[in-house]
Nucleic acid binder design. Sequence first.
DNA 1: TTCAAATATGTAATCATTACAAATAATAAA
DNA 2: TTTATTATTTGTAATGATTACATATTTGAA
Lengths: 139, 139
Amino acid sequence: MIRDPRTTLAAHGIKPSVQRLAVMSYLMEHRTHPTVEEIHNALTAEIPTLSKTTVYNTLRLFVEHGAAAQLTIDERNACFDAETAPHAHFLCTRCGRVYDVPLLTPDLNAAACLPDGFAPEAAELYYRGACKACAPDQD
Amino acid sequence: MIRDPRTTLAAHGIKPSVQRLAVMSYLMEHRTHPTVEEIHNALTAEIPTLSKTTVYNTLRLFVEHGAAAQLTIDERNACFDAETAPHAHFLCTRCGRVYDVPLLTPDLNAAACLPDGFAPEAAELYYRGACKACAPDQD
DNA sequence: TTCAAATATGTAATCATTACAAATAATAAA
DNA sequence: TTTATTATTTGTAATGATTACATATTTGAA
């Protein structure tokens, strides 16, 4: 299991740079599925000149190389995940947080009856609702 | 099984209007998961004064009342589906079409291990890849 | 008819994302 | 080292979907 940002970039054929390492580090240390805005805000402390365009470009590069996944669960902003092993996501429509959810069957391609000739390259399972912190107490 | 737009609106507690009936009719007759733009373009033929804002408002109303589902599979535009029974979707990243895909197990809540206290209200399963028309021929 | 509420319209804002050109940094050759 | 070349980053300006909001129109009841 690869753990450090530099090795992760190398494993996906991405040349390192200060900015790329910072974005990958942030993604690996904050499993909160951050948006571009959140990543940019957080990293300007350590890289004051970091531009938002660079964050966009860097994340696009990561996604193209399979080093990160882009989630469309939040209709307003794209959010990003450095964990590329299969898992589902839960968006709390109250607080806006996105949670990881383990899949019972990791192969999502087996969950539906894909027509002949269709070649899926990625699959995402999204839930929306109230998280534990926001749900009305049931007990 | 409800088939006509007027009954569908009524079943979801939505008062009918010329515009609402037109949008619902369009959604029911065109299972292509159209965007706001596509719906508006198509309906201006029959309702020349139809404003795009009305299409937005109407679709929001439908979604809030459960009469339609909003898909976030396409990161650029929201698209809409009048079929609210459980099924998955496939976005062809080549041609942009969104296809319906039958689920093998209709209950998507059983596909993942949702943490205790989490209350899902909706679930979506999305595939991305090449559709049959766009996939490189395998034979 | 008249009035009040609901619905629709059009324009102007908002805001995430992308395009693009200039600046900077990294790399390799001399 | 210098120099030249390429890759990367930056900032600003466009783009385009969506929303806000004020006005107009329609609907339905009295």
